[in-house]
Every structure is written in C-alpha cells, then in structure tokens.
C-alpha cells in the first residue's frame, strides 16, 4: 500500500458516498446512468470472487471489496426500485453489447491464466475501463449535469488517475513488478476522463454550471 493507492481508494469511496448523497437528498437519480451503475456491479462481482477462494490479502482489502459490492447493489436498488420514476431510460441509450462483447472477447484472449477466475478477473478490469461510457454518453446527450453529479465523476476520475503514479511507485519499489493488464486498461480508463476534467476545471470549479458547448 502506498499513499497514491490509499488516496485513490478513498476517492473511490468518496465517489460512492457523493452518489448516494445526491440520490438521497434530491430523492432522484436524474442524470445518473443506470447502465454504468449495472456495469459496476458486474465489475465488482466478477473481480472480487477471490473473497471466496481464500486468497486473502488484508482486512482492508476484504472490507473494501465487500463495501464496493454492497454499495453498488444498493445503488441499483435505489435506481430501480425506490426512485424508479426519476430514472429516464430514454436518455440512457448507450448499447451495452458494444461494451460487454468486446471486453468478454478481450478477457478470453488476454488473461494471465486461462482459468475461470483469471478470465473473469481480466474481464472485470477491461469492463471497468469502459464502464463509465454510458454515463459520459448520457452527459454528452443532455449537454449538462448537476454539480453534485460532476463531483461524483471527478472523484471517480481522481481514483483512476492516482492508480497510475501508484503503479510507477510500485514499479520502482517492488523490483520492476508490473501488471500489464491493469496498467493498460487503467491508462485507457483514465484517458476517458480527460474531456470531462477539462470542463470540470474550467467551469464547475469556477462556480459555473457544467454545460457542454452546443
């Protein structure tokens, strides 16, 4: 564990609390893509199967894994049941098969071992890299976002961004160790946030509303 990864994980936690806060206080999931949230459930469930195989890393690691699985399922409950009327499927139109198909194929080809757990692990890494696309697509379509929603996305983006210095740090402190699947997918994932952060820094953090140029 190093500071980059710790702050990254805390930022990931923060993003979930920001999202829960947004839904609970506005009593609405307007502006949130349920497709992206469903993909996150799939990401956590397929990656954290090692909770049940005895590959114990640390209490911290296991607690975080359980939290990510639990909170992502809870968010789906809020969106699908409790605040269902505020969920507008007509603007959440990204086709999930464009994500699930290619990531499944990639996982079958590029994995560390052709076993059930390892293929699912690789799938979860590729899936996480692009899971934000339905949300960004929705943002692009509507051209605007509530400020709290942009803080959610910023926290997620910071989490991903900080994993990169974490890998650089680990490379130098752990004898040249590198996890190419995680690193390549992580760089792709971080790159997807670049446009968002441009608008976030130039508008939202200057006190303006998040609005994309027409």
């Amino acid at each position: 564990m190093n500071l980059f990864r710790l702050v990254a994980d805390l930022s990931h936690l923060a993003s979930i609390f920001i999202l829960l806060h947004k839904i609970q206080t506005t009593r609405s999931c307007r502006g949130i893509s349920i497709k992206t949230q469903l993909l996150y459930v799939l990401v956590f469930v397929t990656r954290y199967l090692d909770l049940f195989t005895g590959d114990f890393v640390s209490i911290y690691n296991s607690v975080m894994k359980l939290f990510f699985i639990g909170s992502s399922c809870y968010i789906i409950y809020l969106m699908r049941i409790k605040y269902k009327p505020t969920n507008d499927p007509s603007i959440d139109t990204f086709r999930l098969e464009y994500i699930l198909g290619p990531t499944a194929v990639l996982a079958l080809i590029f994995n560390y071992k052709f076993t059930f757990l390892e293929v699912l692990w690789a799938f979860s890494i590729y899936l996480e890299a692009v899971a934000i696309l339905p949300q960004l697509f929705m943002l692009q379509r509507t051209g605007e976002a509530e400020t709290i929603t942009t803080h959610y996305l910023a926290a997620l983006g910071i989490y991903r961004g900080l994993y990169i210095p974490n890998w650089i740090y680990r490379y130098f402190t752990e004898g040249g160790a590198i996890d190419p699947i995680a690193v390549v997918a992580g760089i792709v994932q971080t790159a997807l946030y670049v446009d968002f952060f441009y608008v976030y820094f130039t508008k939202v953090l200057q006190g303006q509303k998040f609005e994309l140029p027409a």
Binding site: R5, D50, V57, N61, K65, Y112, Y163, N166, D179, A182
Partner: peptide, 10 residues
C-alpha cells in the same frame, strides 16, 4: 503468487 500478478489491488 510469484509472477507479479497477485491481484492485491482493488
């Protein structure tokens, strides 16, 4: 697991 892919990250 020795090959550098211990999956110890979240």
């Amino acid at each position: 697991d020795g090959d550098g892919h211990s999956h110890d990250e979240l």
